[in-house]
């Protein structure tokens, strides 16, 4: 797909957004009763459910236990009806396993694992509808679920995608822009310190553009961080008032 279709002459993208505009974010915390923490996050048309169990005793073989910190176990699963073309297996293929590993590494860096030696924290994400930015929405949803579960974190983790079309960096790409051949840079940062915890790039662009695309992605992350923080505050104040009332 040529660049002219992804970015019009007026500077508008396919879904009408400006290059530096994020998609609409809606989030709901605490939707499931039996999970310790759960969250539902929508970024545009991408919908993700995350559930957190833990910290609890290591399930399965005890050899996985780490003597000085908790072991983070993640599972990334996509529903079979989530994509345009039906997916035969929700998990177990290479891409899902790779995503699960990256989620584990990201959250092992952000959670204060040294407080729970020899235990396990489970994070399960389920993609209900995929419209680009699946991994980033999963990271954000899992982070909200961790906050709902009350797991101590060093800092929140926020993730965002950025792309480059006709020398203009775009933030928060959707499926059409992603499959159109333009490069996609996924970044997860800790918003307070601005440090990068995970980064990956698909497709290619010249190294001179790296700086501005990276800047766009980091700015997008910080913006998403602000929005999610507001949602978190709203949820916790609601919880507080209902506890005080009872």
């Amino acid at each position: 797909m040529s660049g002219t279709e992804l970015l019009s002459d007026q500077g508008l993208r396919i879904d009408g957004r400006k290059p530096n505009e994020l998609r609409r974010i809606r989030c709901s915390l605490g939707i499931f009763a039996q999970a310790d923490g759960s969250a539902y996050l929508e970024q545009g048309n991408t919908k993700v459910l995350a559930a957190v169990y833990g910290p609890h005793e290591i399930r399965g073989s005890k050899s996985k236990a780490l003597h000085d910190k908790a072991f983070v176990n993640c599972q990334y699963s996509t529903a079979t009806f989530s994509m345009g073309e039906r997916k035969r297996r929700p998990r177990g293929d290479r891409k899902s396993t790779e995503m699960s590993t990256h989620l584990e590494e990201t959250f092992a860096a952000a959670i204060r694992t040294e407080l729970y030696p020899r235990s396990q924290i489970d994070i399960f994400v389920e993609v209900l509808q995929a419209d680009g930015g699946n991994y980033t929405t999963c990271v954000n949803a899992a982070m909200m679920a961790l906050v709902d579960a009350g797991v101590p974190l060093k800092d929140t983790v926020v993730s965002c995608t950025a792309s480059l079309v006709k020398d203009t960096p775009l933030v928060d790409v959707n499926h059409v822009e992603q499959s159109g051949g333009s490069p996609e840079l996924v970044v997860s940062i800790l918003p307070h310190s601005g440090e990068i915890v995970y980064m990956s790039l698909t497709q290619r662009f010249h190294i001179d553009h790296l700086s501005k695309v990276l800047d766009t992605a980091i700015k997008g992350c910080k913006d998403i961080g602000v929005i999610l923080k507001e949602i978190m505050k709203g949820h916790l104040t609601k919880l507080d008032t209902s506890l005080q009332a009872s």
Partner: peptide
């Protein structure tokens, strides 16, 4: 980092549990 002879970035990945890196270091 995945690069070709024309100084184009083909792929990039930062991974590891416990890595915090700044943007300048990446560049």
């Amino acid at each position: 980092l995945g690069l070709n002879a024309y100084r184009e970035l083909c792929t990039l990945q930062i991974s590891g549990d416990g890595v915090f890196i700044r943007k300048e270091a990446v560049l």
